[in-house]
Design a protein around this nucleic acid. Structure first.
Lengths: 327, 327
DNA sequence: CTGAAAGCGCTAACAA
DNA sequence: TTGTTAGCGCTTTCAG
């Protein structure tokens, strides 16, 4: 049993000082080949592993970055976090998963980890109302698709353009009564721009604006119930622009319940276009976000903040319409 | 700017010793109310936050658990890891995301984090060939659906029964030529029991065993290509038992390409039954794993191992067939 | 009830 | 080249 071998033990066995052992461990300073070999040998004999925490205490860094998102159990967030993890890993950082759910307490807990210096940085994209601590200047935080405070840079996509593309497609399809689902988020989310685009186009085309608030962090059946209400309130609806793909799926489900056939008498278009959704539901026409690129940009920005460099405050990436058969 | 306030600063401001300040911080020992108040006041005034790393160095624990799985970007793993994160969080632990992909180097890196005591434990379910270090006795590791070493307890589902249920359903549906997809994993994965069940039933019913190896960590189009081959080699195939739901989806896609209609002239049944798959692809008949329960059991086992208690070496959970319309 | 002092394991000035 | 020493920030005996 190799209980707790420390650098001291290695040094003793090699017949050198702790400092020297540390130097060969870190390839620092001038060492004679003889000592290097001796120390390496001792490390091997003792099966030595440096204690990461001790090192971190000295360096005051953990190489850990927290990812705070509503949930990982969703194609969009799963792909985004997977991409973030990979980018971070390549930069030597590990990702701590923080699923905030509908629980701003949990989000605060993860924020504390940063404040307690257990985390070197944070990438946030949760849906909770913003938390005061974010306003502390100069914390290494980057946000994705969420306005947190003017201290926190935001990576987002061109949501307005996405909303415009989606709505225009439905208009081009000849839809007369077009509804939109979104979630209640005030202006904390750039996401709201999707709704603005929808509303603008409805106004320009003299159409009724029909917007339903579908809660994000609730069970699917509750969401479905809200969506059913669209069909009850507007039996003549023939186009729906959903704010995300899973809601688009629920629209399709509800449509079937109401005897509506998609795409024959109801066009549906979603938002996100994650790979897994494309795989499982290729029929869905949707607005696709450049998830990989978002992750790259966010990590790049975060690394700059951690390094104390200045970064842009906003970065907006393009979206594109991906054709399926539902619109 | 509250740069780096330490306990010393708090103690000084409160006019007490570092030790006393530490005591009020940890509610330990006897303290006079007066000192308690003074120290609290000082902490507030200075906006003090204890340094997590220093504390960890003393306690030799980080309250961090690594989750090593092939990817998070998949409905099954996403749901599983979400459930694990939640269970761990409730126990005071944070989850470090380790997406090993098809890269056993990366898996080893995360294992190092455990050895370096940056992690208190590990829950693994990657698909790489087992790594020698796992054999070190008494490491706090739990595995999900993967035989790693006889030192590492395994939580798995009754894969044989799942395979039996699926295959029997296809037989009951009257399928004559039934194929099965699986991935190459030798006997490192309990998953192979699905194939055994399939083969046993084929033998019992004097049917041809048709098994195709679909690689796990490859792009979808490569998997699809393997699956297309099933239809080329066996134009008369009328039933497929896929080893997971995404592959089942690919079977449906390929079937369409070959002009086969599902379920009219081809039955398909999958495996996993994650919530997101059920939402996006409710048509799919599948074998559902009790993901939530698996997470609970795995975390419970891991906590015991971390505490140095003994645990069961195996825990097998039941699966069930969930009806869709594809089989 | 409180303080002094000794670490937790490692790194890095500063000497030698 | 290598050793000595002083921390990194916190917790906890052990005295008082």
């Amino acid at each position: 049993m190799n209980k707790k071998i420390k650098l001291d033990d290695v040094a003793r066995l090699a017949g050198v000082s702790k400092a020297t052992a540390s130097r060969v461990l870190n390839h620092r300073g001038y060492l004679s080949q003889k000592t290097i070999d001796k120390v390496h040998q001792a490390m091997e004999d003792l099966n030595y592993r440096p204690n990461a925490i001790a090192r971190q205490l000295y360096k005051q860094e953990t190489m850990l970055v927290g990812l705070i998102f509503p949930t990982i159990n969703n194609p969009y967030f799963a792909q985004l976090e997977a991409a973030l993890e990979k980018c971070l890993y390549n930069a030597g950082y590990r990702a701590v998963m923080g699923n905030s759910e509908n629980n701003s307490q949990k989000e605060e807990d993860y924020l504390q980890l940063l404040l307690d210096r257990q985390l070197d940085g944070l990438i946030v994209g949760a849906h909770n109302p913003a938390i005061p601590v974010y306003h502390k200047t100069s914390l290494p935080i980057v946000s994705i698709e969420r306005i947190v405070s003017n201290q926190v840079p935001v990576v987002s996509v061109d949501n307005y353009e996405g909303g415009r593309l989606a709505t225009q497609r439905l208009l081009d399809d000849g839809c007369q009564v077009i509804a939109h689902t979104n979630y209640p988020g005030g202006f904390a989310s750039p996401n709201q721009a999707r709704e603005s685009a929808y509303r603008d186009l409805m106004k320009q085309n003299k159409r009724q604006e029909i917007v339903y608030q579908v809660p994000f962090d609730e069970p699917e059946d509750q969401k479905l119930e809200v969506i059913r209400q669209i069909f009850r309130d507007h039996p003549d609806v023939d186009g729906v622009f959903a704010d995300n793909d899973t809601n688009a799926r629920l629209v399709m489900t509800a449509a079937k319940e109401f005897g509506r056939h998609c795409p024959e008498d109801l066009k549906v278009i979603g938002f996100d276009g994650a790979d897994m959704t494309r795989l499982l539901l290729p029929e869905l026409t949707t607005i696709q976000q450049p998830i990989q690129e978002m992750a790259e940009v966010a990590v790049e920005m975060l690394l700059k903040k951690i390094a104390g460099e200045v970064t842009d405050q906003y970065k907006t990436l393009p979206v594109k319409l991906v054709d399926g058969t539902t619109a």
